[in-house]
């Protein structure tokens, strides 16, 4: 039977979470925050501040040393392995190092989440081709990762993360290897998903990007989390974004 405190109305909820690797120092210290459904957050902080570790907790790659994490309403420490797999299917992750499979071409890399979910091949073909065209890789469908540039690999990684319209999208430096126009285009994709209800967390060093979009920040410093509220309204941000796109 599910206990009441095992459930949460949030997409993600951290309560007094700490993390350390083996017997090393604490990477994350007493983190408490929650992500409401449909919210958009930037995750900021210096290198080594713990952004990737916090994301790893969010996509169930790590377990906290202390505290409790709820994901998609359920306590992680109470989940069975099968439930964790099910939860992971509702999370899209853009890894900093892309993590593409070199033995699969661009199409098959992007199709991976759909194949794992048992989608029909005809639907997979349609959706993957459309999305790859959207990120400007319609001519690279059959190219293998080793044949593609860093920016192209990054776009494939993003396409793979969003192809199954995840409930929670986590992106670790998703615009690190693309030019400003493509960065904005990719952020626009995240915004579109966000409008459809996907909760988005984007870890980035790009302060310009953070300033352009008036979303709250999960700011990490020496393993501690500070939530910085947005400095403008959504409409201000949207007008800024679309003005820039028009230019």
């Amino acid at each position: 039977m599910i206990q009441k405190d095992n459930l949460s109305p949030f997409i993600a909820e951290f309560n007094g979470v700490s993390l350390r690797y083996h017997k090393g120092p604490e990477i994350l210290k007493d983190i408490t925050f929650s992500l409401s459904p449909g919210s958009f957050h930037f995750m900021t902080g210096e290198s080594g501040a713990g952004k990737t570790s916090l994301l790893s907790l969010l996509y169930l790659h790590l377990e906290p040393t202390k505290g409790r994490v709820h994901l998609l309403g359920q306590a992680v420490d109470m989940m069975s392995r099968a439930t964790k797999a099910q939860i992971r299917r509702q999370i899209g992750v853009v890894f900093q190092d892309y993590r593409l499979l070199n033995h699969l071409n661009a199409f098959d890399n992007v199709a991976l989440p759909l194949r794992l979910a048992g989608e029909k091949e005809a639907d997979i073909k349609k959706h993957v081709s459309e999305l790859l065209a959207w990120v400007g890789l319609e001519k690279q469908l059959k190219s293998y990762p080793e044949e593609l540039s860093g920016g192209e690999q990054q776009r494939i990684a993003i396409a793979r993360a969003v192809i199954h319209k995840p409930t929670l999208l986590l992106a670790d430096e998703p615009t690190g290897n693309v030019d400003d126009i493509m960065a904005k285009r990719l952020l626009h994709l995240f915004l579109e998903l966000n409008k459809l209800g996907t909760t988005v967390v984007v870890a980035t060093h790009n302060s310009g990007l953070v300033q352009s979009f008036h979303f709250p920040q999960l700011h990490l410093s020496e393993g501690r989390l500070k939530i910085i509220p947005p400095s403008g309204t959504y409409s201000e941000m949207a007008s800024k974004l679309f003005k820039r796109e028009e230019k």
């Binding site: 099968a82 797999a85 939860i87 992971r88 509702q90 499979l101 991976l112 794992l116 979910a117």
Partner: peptide, 13 residues
């Protein structure tokens, strides 16, 4: 590497 990735993408054991 492949196993870890498909595991993270939600493949069941």
């Amino acid at each position: 590497y492949v196993l870890s990735l498909v595991h993270m993408l939600g493949a069941k054991d």
